[in-house]
């Protein structure tokens, strides 16, 4: 029973836009995010994208695993079980904070937190980044990456990004 309010920086402080040497990261707001699960979901949504696909447009679908996608900014779908389509839908708009990292050093920054490269593709956008389970994909350009992080860890993720950026910019001299 120890008051740790001073140990932890106030939530939200780390989320401010940060610019480093060759990259920039900021939070972006999604209109909606919905988990959709069904055994044939990837057949029904063949455009669901993974890594390192470059996504364009406002509304898109991420492939998370063989029976699950994340529909971003999609049309409204009622939460619950859809018997007709045999699919489960849950709104997770507020569960995931979305970061956008852009600039020529984006991949170098991400490599501080994951074994990741454009040459190693994955059908899924899910991966571990700085120890956090995230969904990552390229958005509208080859050097812009969006990362969806669990809301409760968004501060810690941003802190990890900032510290990695600081370390990356520091030379060994």
């Amino acid at each position: 029973m120890r008051d740790d309010r001073m140990k932890w920086a106030p939530a939200g402080r780390e989320l401010a836009t940060f610019e480093g040497d060759g990259f920039r990261f900021q939070c972006v707001t999604m209109q909606s995010q919905a988990l959709v699960s069904a055994s044939d979901i990837l057949t029904r949504m063949p455009d669901a994208l993974g890594w390192p696909d470059v996504i364009c447009g406002q509304s898109y679908v991420l492939s998370l695993r063989r029976d699950r996608v994340l529909v971003v900014n999609g049309p409204f779908v009622q939460d619950g079980w859809d018997s007709e389509l045999s699919q489960a839908v849950s709104d997770v708009t507020d569960a995931l904070t979305v970061f956008e990292i852009s600039g020529p050093n984006t991949l170098a920054l991400m490599r501080r937190g994951a074994e990741i490269s454009f040459e190693a593709p994955s059908r899924s956008a899910s991966r571990l980044l700085f120890g956090f389970g995230v969904f990552a994909y390229r958005y509208e350009s080859h050097d812009t990456v969006r990362v969806h992080v669990n809301h409760a860890h968004s501060d810690a993720f941003a802190q990890a990004l900032r510290q990695a950026a600081t370390r990356m910019q520091a030379t060994l001299t």
Binding site: D4, W8, A11, H151, A152, H153, D155, A156
Partner: peptide, 28 residues
């Protein structure tokens, strides 16, 4: 590496934390 202090085992944070801090909450 950087996995030390608050990044060693980062805690989950509440959406309402700013309200709690404003209300003089002791955070544990």
């Amino acid at each position: 590496g950087q996995r030390k202090a608050t990044l060693f085992s980062p805690l989950k944070r509440l959406k309402l934390e700013p309200e709690h801090r404003a209300a003089d909450a002791a955070l544990v």
